[in-house]
């Protein structure tokens, strides 16, 4: 049952300097379905794959609007994401009430990072079991942040979290150079293509399992769900993985030199909290 003696709580380091409860929390993210985020000079886009636990059940919500300029995509424990999103909403509202301004994206991200960090340092607490992609626009332009239960947050030009997300990241790494000047449509399609690559062999993107959201400079956060996704899937064309089979990419798949797109490696760098 236990991996070792050092994972009973999140306040005890292992002799190797790891905090296992936090690492397990990062594993919870990988249990969740994939979510992709990417930014251009003018827009930020979130794309996510929804899952239903049962054939007759509804699909779990993957993208949550926080404010008119801000939203999140989640992978992992959805209830934990609700707690975080409610907190983000109240932060966002306070900013508007007190300062009469939409909260800067980095500020709200740092606020949840601080909350998450507390859980890694107090006995009897549990780290959040969810990873978030935060997409938003503020006075310094569009932004995409990744949040991890360790309390680590990093800004990206494009990244993906959740099950089989390495394939999506591989797509983003290969195409990130065209993101910056991409139109809204192109950016969404890049997102869908990245998400498509994370699909298992016999799966495809449908109006039922795709959620996507766009926010732009001067354009409110807009969530596309259900039938609203159809127009985008039409533009995408092929809705199955272009990678032929859903196998994990080998190390050779990654471009040489390591593109600067996804600097935080969720697979190995889980404990890179010292930076």
């Amino acid at each position: 049952m236990f991996r070792n003696n050092y994972d009973n709580d999140s306040v005890t380091f292992s002799p190797q300097g790891r905090i296992f409860q936090v690492e397990y929390a990062l594993e919870a993210i990988k249990q969740g379905s994939a979510a992709v985020g990417l930014v251009s000079k003018t827009h930020a886009v979130l794309v996510a794959l929804k899952r239903n636990a049962e054939e007759l059940g509804s699909y779990q919500k993957k993208i949550i609007g926080i404010d008119s300029h801000l939203g999140i995509a989640l992978a992992g424990l959805a209830p934990d994401a609700r707690v975080l999103s409610n907190f983000m909403r109240s932060q966002s509202m306070s900013s508007r009430l007190l300062y009469n301004r939409p909260i800067p994206v980095s500020r709200v991200v740092n606020a949840i990072a601080d909350k998450a960090q507390v859980n890694t340092q107090h006995y009897g607490r549990r780290p959040y079991g969810v990873g978030l992609l935060v997409a938003g626009v503020d006075e310094t332009g569009p932004h995409l942040w990744e949040f991890q239960p360790s309390g680590m947050v990093l800004e990206y030009r494009g990244t993906a979290i959740g099950a089989r997300s390495q394939s999506a990241r591989t797509y983003l790494e290969r195409n990130f150079e065209s993101f910056e000047n991409a139109s809204k449509e192109e950016l969404v399609l890049h997102g869908l293509k990245a998400l498509r690559d994370s699909l298992a062999q016999d799966k495809e993107l449908t109006t039922l399992n795709v959620s996507l959201a766009v926010v732009g400079i001067g354009k409110n956060f807009k969530l596309y769900d259900g039938d609203e996704v159809a127009e985008w899937l039409e533009k995408l064309g092929d809705t199955t993985s272009s990678r032929g089979g859903g196998a994990r990419p080998s190390a050779a798949d990654a471009p040489a030199g390591g593109a600067p797109v996804t600097t935080g490696d969720t697979e190995a760098g889980a404990m890179d909290t010292s930076e």
Binding site: L97, L98, Y99, N100, R101, P104, S106, R107, E139, T140
Partner: peptide, 19 residues
């Protein structure tokens, strides 16, 4: 201290003071 390029301008200071 945040040093993130989101300093408070006149309308923000005014909103704060009003509150």
């Amino acid at each position: 201290y945040q040093e993130d390029g989101h300093g408070l301008r006149a309308k923000h200071i005014y909103s704060y003071l009003s509150r």
